[in-house]
């Protein structure tokens, strides 16, 4: 085969271009906007116009105003809960998938991932109609005699956001957990049996620890997607379901305070980056070779 020296010049230029693009695109579309936001967060607004003098005012306001920090914490707790519930539901589902044989396994996996292809807004509407006063959930609970009459417990509050986000994001948790479970060589499980372990012992000592990287990726995925979402809280949160995403969104809309919005975005970005780093740290396999 031809060595590097014989590759035509045009082809080499081509590959150089691809390389440059591969590095340039993330810089242009991710890092530059982030940098602009960071810059904006040090400006301020005076009577509807942006004042381009640097100050820490926005950050001081974020940390001292009694509104923002509590919402910030509540939102983080909410999203951690979403991540935890998603994991608890997705793990058994993913585990069940790996026990299926060949074709069934992937057919069912695809079925579980289909919601990812649907419009986000339509999914939220669908879930809202399930949770609403006349929705499926209430009808079922009343029908089973668990509730006397339809409850408003599931719409336009924090519960509604929690449930909706969980339903929306579960596929993002199933996939990484499934992949990490599927990567565990069967022979390790047989070796564990061979050494006298019971089925439960094999699961707790071999399967579970070896799938933790997938769990970590899933958790950080779900958390990051949940905390960045303002649409869901907007649509199902009502007045009491106030999240950080909604405050942030309002700064760019009704409040029209871009610099403060940018400062809030920076705070959010710090949490997101931290979550990604934590997920990455635990998502890495310690030693994959066997």
């Amino acid at each position: 085969m031809s060595g590097t020296g014989t590759i035509p010049l045009a082809e080499r230029r081509w590959s150089l271009l691809v390389t440059v693009l591969a590095f340039a695109l993330p810089v242009v579309f991710v890092l530059v906007p982030l940098a602009i936001f960071l810059g904006y967060s040090f400006f301020s607004v005076d009577q509807g116009t942006i004042v381009h003098t640097l100050s820490l005012g926005n950050y001081v306001r974020f940390f001292t105003d009694p509104i923002f920090l509590p919402v910030f914490w509540n939102t983080i707790v909410l999203c951690l809960s979403v991540a935890a519930i998603c994991i608890l539901l997705a793990y058994p589902a993913a585990y069940f998938l790996t026990t299926l044989k060949g074709r069934w396994r992937y057919a069912l996996l695809m079925l579980l991932l289909v919601p990812l292809l649907m419009s986000y807004v339509i999914k939220i509407y669908a879930i809202r109609s399930i949770l609403g006063l006349n929705g499926f959930l209430n009808k079922a609970l009343v029908g089973l005699g668990i509730l006397q009459e339809p409850s408003t417990l599931f719409v336009f509050n924090m519960n509604a956001i929690l449930l909706t986000l969980t339903l929306l994001l579960i596929p993002f948790a199933i996939l990484p957990i499934f992949l990490s479970l599927e990567r565990i060589p069967q022979v390790l499980l047989r070796a564990s049996d061979d050494l006298g372990a019971s089925g439960l012992q094999t699961f707790l000592r071999i399967t579970l620890p070896l799938s933790l990287p997938g769990v970590a990726s899933a958790a950080s995925f779900v958390f990051v997607l949940a905390i960045g979402d303002f649409l869901t809280p907007q649509m199902v949160g009502g007045i009491s379901g106030f999240t950080f995403g909604r405050i942030l969104y309002s700064q760019f809309g009704t409040a029209y305070n871009w610099p403060f919005g940018a400062a809030l975005s920076v705070a959010l970005a710090v949490v997101v980056i931290a979550a990604i780093l934590v997920g990455e740290r635990f998502g890495r396999n310690r030693g994959t070779a066997i």
């Binding site: 047989r190 070796a191 050494l195």
Partner: peptide
Amino acid sequence: NRRPFNTVFQDYALFP
């Protein structure tokens, strides 16, 4: 897991 035999597997199958 009840048989009093143990196997040394072809690719060792050590727990990573």
